[in-house]
Simulated scan of single mutants.
Amino acid sequence: MRKIFLVVLLLGAVGAALVAFVAPTPGPLRTVPAAAVDHAAYDQLLKKYVNEQGLVNYAAWKTDQQALNQYLDRLSKNPPATSWSKPEQMAYWINAYNAYTIRLILNHYPVKSIKDIGSKIKIPFVTTPWAAEFFSIGGQKMSLDDIEHGTLRKKYDDPRIHFALVCASLSCPRLRNEAFTADKLDRQLDEQGRDFLRDPAKNKVGQASAQLSKYFDWYKGDWNKNGQSVAKWVNTYAATKMNANAKVSYLDYNWSLNQQ
């Protein structure tokens, strides 16, 4: 019996040694990269409440906000990851800006202008609706200014974003009744540029003179980057090409709400 017991012990020791030899050493846990947010739900809402002229039916949307809230909740919980492509990140932030602007208007509707909301904000040192931190993304409180100036303009260096961000006013670019998506982003931004520069209510372009949107004055530094100029950007999209020495003035900005 003693010999059998010793044999069993010996076999057990050998087995343990073999297990220790062949068992793989646990490595670091691998995380699956976060998938880019699907904007299909927002796309459906835009098609439902925004017409071809970019005017929004805020009155109807005010009575049906659940789907918008769900989409914004998805944005809030899924900020862009470094694994996302540049178009995926840009589409996310452009949609976020426009969707949260709609959220802001609905929060205060009816209003005649987004600028009327500023007087209703009772937060110290916050005097405009764009500076109000009324939403969170990835657990961080944010404002519309944070998206436009702190993220899109600072990180992606593409002035065409100014054709895509819509501040709920008639002089803003037209709000597309479709969401921006990574696979269409370049085409969508160019379409926005053509639409904006060929709308005589927003830009009047002639060869010798041009009355431009204040966007080209407010963001002059963006248009002049990388060897570009206001004239070059205008001529990329305008039907009539302005001369490099054309006389430029700027149209008054219409802050009236972009509503149907």
Rank of each mutant, 00 (worst) to 15 (best):
E88T: 02
G227E: 13
A16C: 11
Q65I: 08
V32Q: 11
N51I: 13
W93M: 00
Y156E: 05
F125D: 13
G193Y: 00
C167Y: 01
I147H: 00
K214W: 08
N177K: 09
K202D: 02
V234T: 01
Y71G: 04
A40Q: 11
P33C: 08
V205C: 01
A239C: 08
A201G: 06
M1N: 10
A164T: 04
Y109S: 05
L9E: 12
K225S: 11
D116R: 10
W255L: 05
L251Q: 04
I114D: 00
V14N: 14
Q140C: 12
K232G: 08
Y97T: 03
W130D: 00
F163Y: 09
L75P: 01
Q211I: 13
A201V: 11
S136C: 14
Y109M: 09
V14Y: 10
K3Y: 11
G15E: 15
D145S: 07
E88H: 04
S76K: 03
A35S: 13
P129K: 02
Q89G: 03
A238R: 00
A41Y: 06
N245C: 12
Q207K: 14
S85V: 04
R187E: 09
L189C: 01
S119Y: 10
P33Q: 11
I94W: 02
S213K: 06
I121Q: 14
P79N: 08
K48T: 07
Q207A: 06
P28K: 07
N243H: 13
